[in-house]
Amino acid sequence: MSIRALPLYATIAIFLLAYLICYIQFPAMLSTRVIGNLLTDNAYLGIVAVGMTVVIVSGGIDLSVGSVIAFAGVFIAVILRDTGLHPLVVFAMLLLITTAFGAAMGGMIHLLAMPPFIVTLAGMFLARGAGYMLSIDSVPIADPFYQMMQRAYFVMPGRGRLTLLGMIMIAAVILGMIVLHRTRFGTNVYALGGDATAARLMGVAVGRTTVAVYAFSGFMAGLAGIVFSVYTSAGYPLATVGVELSAIAAVVIGGTLLTGGSGYMFGTLIGVLTMGLIQTYIVFDGSLSSWWTKIAIGALLLMFILLQKGLLRLRVSQ
């Protein structure tokens, strides 16, 4: 329909093409088991990328999310170890903290008119440091509720497992789609990313929207932290270094414009799955070094940045 949707179509086409190539070489890759694992293994990345999509569409960036995930893991592990609180209570506490943390960064960005890059960079160090303060070592989680969550799954036809983690990710993406595409807040996010001055003149509450954007990202980072701690059964302050960059990569590969104002939540899901697919392919191949994942993702990113540049030029020339 619109030229802005082109990157989304490109993303979907590339994903399908990549899957086809994988399938021809390794027919087993089409099994629901592989698909189930793809969702489970990338659940935390997918969730954090949902928050990142909203941030990037608003014209910002959130570098703190990787550290927030690590902090979340340590926080949950330490509280569960030291107190008798139910994990669900701990989750609620954590989500409150990370959401408030995001909101505080959003507030700073708006009130001090500081670049999001700097504010969230500070947030990145802060969250990482807070994790270290709680524990320097990896803290194992042996809560029975955790074991229950790890074992919760549906069996799909073909004996693939749709795990709870995978379902949480899908739920997060759906929530993200509704928030971004079907709420006034979501439209305000696009408005902000398109042209902050015009948005303000049209009555968008720029400050409130900015705070909400980073609060949403903080919430999603907290949720990703919960999922990651279930996935690894531990909290470790050195975990998930650089995940914020993977999330940004997934968002960009998903067709969202880094300059803001344009993109689709669904694209981000495809972006995450594309990155997971490359990883899976390398595991299947067995002979390739895992660094090929990074090279392939780098090449994809470059391609999408060039595509965006091309589209931008196309739009200008219209």
Binding site: R182, T187, Y190, G194, L201, G203, V204
Partner: peptide
Amino acid sequence: NLLPNLTVAENLTLGHQPRRFGII
């Protein structure tokens, strides 16, 4: 005046979009 990246409808209704159960 307006936001080129939004649809015409979104531009016209921005801030007072009709909602059902909080969803546009």
